[in-house]
Design a protein around this nucleic acid. Sequence first.
DNA 1: GTTCCACCGGAAACGGGGGAAC
DNA 2: GTTCCCCCGTTTCCGGTGGAAC
Length: 340
Amino acid sequence: MIANPDVLQADFQPADILHRHDQIDYLSSILEPVREGERVNGAFIYGPTGAGKTCTAQFLLDRLADSSDDVHTYAIDCWTNYTYGGCLRRLLEGFQITTERSTPKDVLAAQLRDQIDEPFVVILDEVDQLEDDRILYQLYEHPQITMVLIANRRDDFYSTLEMRVESRLSGFPGVEFRKYTESELVNILRDRVDAAVQPDAIGEQRLFDIARISGGDARVAISVLRNALKDAEASGAEQVSTAHIEAVIDDARREILRMTISKLTSDQRVLFQVLLEGGELSFGEIFGEYEARVDEPLVRRTIRNHLKKMAHYDIVAYSGEKSGRTYWVVDELEVGSAPA
DNA sequence: GTTCCACCGGAAACGGGGGAAC
DNA sequence: GTTCCCCCGTTTCCGGTGGAAC
């Protein structure tokens, strides 16, 4: 049934990004001068998870790199490179400059300033995860670097920046990526189906079912599609049925959850599990349960930092400013009701 | 109003890990 | 192999806040 499984992976880069042509055209017009060697400040892409932000930005950078040998491009995941030094090192790596963990940060900054002497377009994905916005200021001031910033919420990001950085970046043209509509998701799924599976493996109505339960999130929709096709194939069916889709909704949920928690440290995973099982909990309840589950627990202050970081990741949420604060897991995968 | 307790978060210190220099 | 330097996660200290009990 499945002829080309790679096409069903969430990170597969399609030849065309459906329903994002307006954004692509606009971003292309912004980045066009870079091709001619001119300096462009950059752009800011924002919108919810699964709206195609990263995929589109990567698509644009690939196209830019293909069209000109003189333009260097690189993408940095600020979730994993959130420290000032770590982000600087990744940037220099992108320009083929090798660095060491022990290299002083001011040396890295000087290398960035002095050694990048050709047009360089950088995607900073999940830019709101950066701990230190000095890097954004230095990139802005660099005569050869163009930034493409990606985050979920525009206003939240700008509100965290130091004034001198905010005043510069607020001039970046913003490009909003809204959630996909059901019919848009159906087109995206059909595109993948046409490239990946045998004809008639899944009917149009079943694609609508998947689109409806995915809440506008292409990542979820593709995960449900992939799992439903696998389930149908394993059961010897010739076509995906409603029952196959119903059977894999929880699998898709777990898959997304696994992808999310795979980025966490072991202690953060315990905290996540405590909150997942306990629902809404106070700090004292979380810490008590955490302490009982690990052999060498970290101190309270560190756990507070971890919870704050997880809230920054949008994995957990909290209400209340001081005492009386409670924490809970954010249900990121908003899978709706099962198909009718 | 006062005291106690739990909690938050800034600041500084500590220590492990990794690389460079000798 | 040893020493030094640096990064970065963790710990310690401490001031501030808010709610509950008296």
